[in-house]
Design a protein around this nucleic acid. Structure first.
Lengths: 243, 243
DNA sequence: ATCAAATAAATTTTCGGCAATCGATTGACG
DNA sequence: CGTCAATCGATTGCCGAAAATTTATTTGAT
């Protein structure tokens, strides 16, 4: 059974389709961290040849979602406490810059857009009726859109693209933490405060709130990650015991 | 004639070799901005099949050095004044964070490494005896190493990888500016000051110097870019004149 | 039994060729 | 004369199979 809801629309290259689906599957942890990505398996999963898949994997390697080892193939990037901390700390700083610039430059258009994004987010249920063990895909979309709207007026495309890459990586950790423990926190309030501060052009407050928003996620994910570490390490231990 | 000095060493995947050579050729502007990258031509240039080349190109697209348009193939990323400004502004902020953390955390090891990198850089001639229209490749290497040494203790791999990606993109603009006008500035002094401030753990001064270092490059490149804009736009104008 | 070399299986990586697509040119028609 | 449709060449994108490499298994010597 094909995995992703995002069915490849018409007139896209298989390459692009593979890229979208793979990225989506990795971020949602339908392909688990450290899982080996055998081309034959993916070939079957997505119903296409090896070339578009390898190309997509190379692309994802640059994005940091996939790792490649010479002649040993691809695997989904490993997760770890250190990587999580690294990622979140970096993300906080990057978003801070983007937010600062966005608050400086944002006009009416930006304000309207932000309000609109918040409204859509607040009306979207976080829980997925179909799959209670996962966050609603629609909510994820609106959530991402809201945070994008916050920084969208920053005027530095390079910075924005870096930001969204980090955001995606963080989403993977969140997906992971949902799978183990899911006391879904209510973050409508958080988002509202964030928006208010931004609209008031209160840079310090916005940055603080954003930092707290990220930190709170980080803590939750870190706990879940530590808990799931109790599971067996997937390294094979098939060497026969000595004497 | 194969282009890059960096001959693909033994036992590397063709894929990896293509990646290295392509990146090097693009950064050095041996493949010019906006130039179309036909696979057949690259196939011949690097002496390999289409697959490893396409894979490398996809990788480079994620890095921002190459652009892909559906069914129309790849081209080297466009350069522009806006992109240059965007790039440099982003780079300043990112390096500022990395520097701050590096100065906080750097130990003796880091200091030693930095001194060593500076020494190597200061003893390396900037001009290439073989090709006076280009910067010595050895110098570029030492220069990159020096700046990497400055931030190396920052402790955030994610941030460092972002930094080096931006650094590479900037190198391309520098290469471009060298080709048109080359009043090579003496930057040994600048680098020395930068190192001194860093070793003294003077965060503000280090950040300022770094900002100025980048800005100075930016200005020089911006002028050269504007000048070269007088050249004909490589867009074909083969439509017959009307009436 | 232990270890190492040798073989076999599995998987990655690469190639050559074919189908789909785009851009330009040509020719028919209003 | 200009517009639109059909055609052709060039180029991309894709597949299936071959080559190279790693991993697992067997064999043989000590």
């Amino acid at each position: 059974m094909p995995s992703s809801l995002a069915e490849s629309d018409a007139s896209q290259t298989l390459n692009a389709s593979a890229l979208t689906q793979l990225r989506s599957d990795i971020i949602a942890c339908r392909l688990m961290p450290n899982e080996r990505l055998r081309v034959e398996a993916l070939r079957e999963r997505y119903g296409m040849g090896a070339s578009p898949i390898r190309e997509a994997l190379m692309r994802l390697e640059a994005e940091g979602l996939v790792e490649l080892e010479q002649n040993k193939g691809f695997r989904v990037s490993e997760v770890s406490r250190e990587n999580l901390l690294d990622l979140m700390n970096t993300r906080i700083e990057i978003e801070s810059i983007a937010l600062r610039w966005s608050l400086e430059k944002g006009g009416v258009e930006w304000e309207a857009n932000l309000l609109s994004a918040f409204h859509r987010l607040s009306r979207q249920s976080k829980i997925d009726p179909a799959n209670t063990a996962a966050i609603s895909e629609a909510w994820s979309k609106e959530h991402a859109d809201f945070h994008t709207a916050l920084v969208s007026a920053c005027g530095a495309p390079t910075l924005l693209s870096i930001r969204s890459r980090l955001f995606e990586q963080a989403e993977r950790y969140v997906a992971l933490s949902i799978m183990s423990s899911s006391p879904l926190r209510d973050d409508v309030t958080e988002h509202k405060q964030l928006m208010r501060a931004a609209l008031n052009r209160d840079v310090d407050k916005t940055l603080d709130l954003n930092r707290m928003h990220i930190t709170r996620t980080l803590d939750k994910v870190a706990v879940a990650l530590e808990a799931s570490k109790a599971h067996v390490d997937p390294r094979m231990m098939n060497r026969k015991t000595l004497k």
